[in-house]
Design a protein around this nucleic acid. Structure first.
Lengths: 211, 211
DNA sequence: GGAATTTTTTACAGGGCCGTAAAAATCCTG
DNA sequence: CAGGATTTTTACGGCCCTGTAAAAAATTCC
C-alpha cells in the first residue's frame, strides 16, 4: 500500500473516531507513524485530504445513480436500486461515508467547497429526476413535490452516518428492505382497518395543538 | 431582551451562518457588541453556549413526542402528529434546529455531551415506541424493524437542517404532508399498474451489478 | 449622592495548530 | 558504490483561540 493511500486510510479512521474538526494534521501523522510535516509532501493541505476522502464517494454515488436512471428498469425497481446504490456504499466504505456525511463541512478552500457542493447537488438533482420520471410514468404519486421526496429519501439514507455501525447494526440488506418498503409503500398496513377518525375532516393544527 | 438571551440569539445566528466549529467566542462577542471576555460573565464556556442553544430544542421535542404517545389518537394520527411535532420546530426555531442537527457535535465537556446524547437517545426511543405501538395495534406493518423505521423517519426530518431555508423552501405544512405521505403510504401509486417485472423472481445483487 | 451591584474592559496566561523550506536520511538503480 | 530520486526530519514563522482575574465603568437603588 502506498504511503499516500495509507495516509488517507488513517486519516479516515481518525476523522471518523474523533470528528473531522477535532482532528489535527499531527493526529493523522501520528496514526501513520511519520512527522506531521511529511504529510505536506503528499497533500496540499488538510482540506485536500478531506476532499480526497469525500469526493470518490460522492462521485461514485452520482455515477451509480446515473447508470440506474439510464437503465430500462421499471420505476419501482429503479427506486430500490437507487437506495441500494446509496446504502451499499456504507459497506465497505462505512468510514468514508461517515466522514463525508456526518458533519456539514465548511471548507476554507472555496474552489474545493464549490466542487464538492456541485457533486452533491448533481446527486440530489438525479434523485429528483428519478422521482419525476416515475411520476410521469404513473408509477409514483404525481401530487408529491419530487424535490422534497428526493430530499426526504436522501435524509433517510444520509442520517445513517449518525447511527450506523457495521459491528452493531443489522445488515445493510435488511436496512435496505425496510427503507425501500417505507419509501415505496409506507409503514401503514393496507389491510389494517382504517380508524373512524381517518374519515373525519382534517382538524386544524390549532385544534390539534390544544390536545 | 436580556443580555444573556441576546448573546444566545446572536450566537445561534453566527453558528448557523458560518458553522459551529468556525465560530469563535470573539465572533459571537462582535455580533453582540461587547468584548469577548464579557461573554464569560454570562456563560461558563463555549460549549455551555452551544448546550443552551441545543438542549431546549431537543428537550421540547421529547416532551412533545411523549405527549403524543400518551394521547388517545389512533396510530396513524400519532405518526402525523409526531412528524408535525418535529417539523414545526423548524418554524420558528429554524436557526436553533439547524445548529443542533446540521453538525455532529463533539463536546469537550463529557458530562454535557452525555446529557445531550441522553436526550437524543430518549427521543429515538420514543419514536421507536410509537412505531411499535402502531405495529401491535395492527395499523403499522409488523415485519419492519421499529428501530430502523424510527431512524429512517428521524433521518428524513433531521436532514432538513442541511437544506431547509424558510426564505426559499416550500412551507413546512407542505413538507409535512409530503413526508407523512411518504412514511405512511409510500410514493408508489397504489392504482398504478404493477410492472410485469415486479412479479419476476428477485435478481441477485451480483446480476443487478452487472447491468 | 453615595453605596452596592452589575457589567464591561483591560491585562494576562497558556496552549494549539497550519504550512513552508531546507537539510538530512533513506532508498533505488545502473 | 555513487548518483539520483524519494521520503522524512528539523527548524522556522505565523496565527488563532480559550479562559481567568482584577480593575474600571456603568447602572441601580435607597
Amino acid at each position: 500500500m502506498s504511503r499516500r493511500i495509507q495516509i488517507l486510510r488513517r486519516a479516515t479512521e481518525v476523522f471518523e473516531r474523533q470528528g473531522v474538526n477535532r482532528t489535527s494534521i499531527e493526529d493523522i501523522a501520528n496514526a501513520v507513524g511519520i512527522k506531521r510535516e511529511a504529510i505536506y509532501y503528499y497533500f496540499k493541505s488538510r482540506a485536500d485530504i478531506l476532499l480526497k476522502i469525500i469526493l470518490p464517494q460522492s462521485t461514485s454515488l452520482v455515477m451509480g445513480l446515473g447508470a440506474i436512471i439510464n437503465s430500462n428498469l421499471p420505476a419501482e425497481e429503479k427506486l430500490e436500486a437507487a437506495i441500494r446504490n446509496h446504502l451499499d456504499r456504507f459497506n465497505p466504505n462505512y468510514l468514508e461515508m461517515t466522514v463525508a456525511l456526518r458533519e456539514d463541512h465548511f471548507l476554507e478552500d472555496e474552489g474545493k467547497a464549490a466542487e464538492l457542493r456541485g457533486v452533491w447537488n448533481e446527486y440530489t438533482h438525479l434523485w429528483t429526476r428519478l422521482i419525476e420520471d416515475g411520476q410521469e410514468q404513473g408509477i409514483f404519486k404525481p401530487g408529491l413535490d419530487a424535490r422534497m421526496v428526493a430530499n426526504g429519501v436522501l435524509g433517510m439514507c444520509n442520517w445513517m452516518s449518525r447511527w450506523y455501525d457495521p459491528g452493531k447494526s443489522i445488515p445493510i440488506d435488511k436496512i435496505l428492505d425496510i427503507f425501500f418498503t417505507m419509501v415505496a409503500h409506507g409503514i401503514v398496513d393496507p389491510g389494517a382497518k382504517p380508524p373512524a377518525a381517518a374519515k373525519a375532516p382534517r382538524r386544524t393544527r390549532k385544534a390539534a395543538a390544544k390536545d
